[in-house]
């Protein structure tokens, strides 16, 4: 546990020593706000909730989270620091979790910085703040899901651009697995049961309930499992890559 935190702290500091972190946060905030106001017509809707704010998060994360996660392992492998890190007395799992946690906290900070919109909605009306908190937590969980996928993929390559693209593609499959184009892709060759299972893996459907304030344990378990399984695979990839 202590090692995870030491690694996480170093990694988090690494995010903030580069200007990329600040650029990322600004882009995230600008897009999150812009989409809410211009595409969601948040003000015109005349409703005191943040539905149209959260509804765009899956698509924002699809492109922005791979940008956060792409460097996690690709950079270590490229610069050779992976050898330095992995010959310290820590387990591979601790390194994987520590790095993931740092990136997740970073995503959480970006998410928290959207707080003005929460203040605004409370100023303009009388929203159900329980729903908003649930939606924030759900959004952060979903970000964790995307991030765990990005982290695993990042361990596959030394090239951050490749890591970004692979993570976005993988994220797209998970995001859209309930949607017809992905379903059709699987229906062509897989049995119906498998196609249904794929639909269950959809980030979109699992997030929708949470974003509307419905706390369904299955949704929370879903994102927790995605994170757990992805990080487990991540650990295996790191083990394999360092030995080859």
């Amino acid at each position: 546990m202590r090692n995870i935190w030491i690694i996480g702290r170093r990694e988090l500091a690494a995010y903030f020593t580069s200007p990329v972190a600040y650029v990322f946060i600004v882009i995230f905030l600008a897009l999150a706000g812009g989409l809410t106001f211009f595409f969601g017509n948040w003000l015109e809707r005349g409703q005191a909730d943040l539905q149209v704010f959260f509804i765009y998060h899956p698509y924002l994360y699809l492109f922005l989270i791979p940008a956060v996660g792409m460097r996690l392992w690709a950079e270590e492998r490229k610069s050779g620091t992976m050898e330095f890190l992995m010959t310290l007395p820590i387990s591979t799992g601790q390194a994987v979790i520590g790095k993931f946690v740092a990136a997740w906290i970073f995503a959480g900070i970006a998410l928290l910085l959207t707080f003005p919109i929460w203040i605004t909605v409370n100023f303009l009306g009388d929203p159900d703040n329980g729903v908003i908190v649930t939606a924030y937590v759900g959004s952060w969980l979903m970000a964790g899901g995307f991030l765990a996928l990005s982290s695993s993929v990042s361990a596959l390559t030394k090239n951050q651009v490749v890591a970004f693209v692979l993570a976005a593609v993988l994220g797209f499959i998970f995001l859209m697995s309930g949607v017809e184009i992905v379903q059709a892709f699987f229906r062509a060759w897989a049995p119906q049961k498998f196609v249904d299972a794929v639909a269950e893996l959809s980030f979109l459907s699992n997030f929708t309930d949470l974003s509307q304030g419905v706390i369904d344990v299955r949704d929370i378990l879903f994102f927790a499992s995605v994170i757990g399984v992805a990080l487990f695979i991540n650990t295996a990839i790191v083990e394999i890559k360092k030995s080859a």
Binding site: I6, R10, A14, G80, T81, E83, F84, T87, L88, P89
Partner: peptide, 25 residues
Amino acid sequence: YLPEGAPLYGDMTPNSLLNFVCDIR
């Protein structure tokens, strides 16, 4: 261990890197 080419985290300072190693160890 000093790996070949002495790979280190470029964004850290020697001070923070050495303290990181002390923490981990």
